[in-house]
Amino acid sequence: MIALLLALGSSLSYGCADFLGGLGARKAHVLRTVMIAAPASLAVELLLWPFLGASFSTGALAWGAASGVASAAAFALLYKTLAIGPMNVLSPITALVSAMLPVAVGLLQGEHLGTAGLIGLPLALTAVILVSTGSGTGSARPSHTALLLAFGAGAAIALQLIFLHQAPSDSGVAPLIIGRAVSTTVTLAAAGIMYRKLGPEKPAYAMSAAAGVLDSVANLLFLFAARNGDLAVVAVITALYPAGTVLLARRVLAERIHRGQMVGLGAAAAAVSLLALT
């Protein structure tokens, strides 16, 4: 039950962070948004260090650094994906992809899926197809570029979660601190190299910083959830995060989608729910 609640909290935080990050990336180049979000996220983890403790063992350093590289890619790909939009279609795609890889890793490590999980996996793939290929006049159909970015973002998120899960369970927030320090360094280096291509637009500072803070909270909750439960189950519960993104997108941006895609979103919700029952 503790792992479930932590994973649900992580899901809600990720959903809100993604919405704010994607919205911020519409106002300026995505790297300008990530340049604010990543350091803000690191600041939160450094503030939590005295309270939650950290053990910088070799394992924590290695897996934390790996998660940081994946996190930098996830930040940039996800915010760019959501900036292109539509959020209420692309966010569920990233969620399903980000859930599938941890499930596979969990199974390889000896975790077991019940009947619900065996039904949920193919249903999840069907949902991806339905959500991705909705058609009709006025439908919010994503471009091929947006779909590729969404799949890439989902894979990067999955790798980040897998690497965090591999870190020693007694390392406290050390993997998060190392990971965020690495992702911040990678982001700032990329921004420096591409400085002339970033454009003159200023980032939405408050929105970008809030996205980073919420992303840090989400990572923390996921880490503790994974330490108290199975990776396969925690990952798919965390993958419910599009619910927050879609709700905010519909309310704030008035995004609308085709009926066929609504069926896909329903199938996605059902698939994640089934997987969560395993």
Rank of each mutant, 00 (worst) to 15 (best):
A40K: 14
T94G: 07
I129W: 05
L113P: 09
T115S: 09
N228E: 11
A155D: 06
G134F: 09
V186W: 06
T126L: 15
K27Q: 03
V217D: 02
F19S: 02
S171K: 04
I36H: 08
L277E: 02
L31D: 11
S41C: 02
W63I: 01
A54N: 08
R256Q: 05
T245R: 00
L107R: 13
K197V: 02
D170P: 01
A210R: 05
L274R: 04
L248P: 04
L113W: 11
G22V: 00
A206I: 10
G244F: 03
A83S: 15
L247C: 10
G68A: 03
L220T: 04
L176Y: 11
G192D: 12
L4W: 12
T137D: 12
G24V: 10
G192E: 08
V213C: 10
A210V: 08
A235N: 03
G117C: 10
V182K: 01
P92V: 13
L188P: 06
L176E: 08
T185P: 06
A28Y: 14
D230A: 14
G152T: 01
S10W: 02
I129L: 12
A65G: 01
A204K: 04
S98R: 07
I84W: 14
V34C: 07
L6K: 07
H258M: 06
G120I: 12
V131G: 00
Y195P: 00
A206P: 03
R256H: 14
Y14T: 09
G15L: 04
S135I: 10
V233T: 12
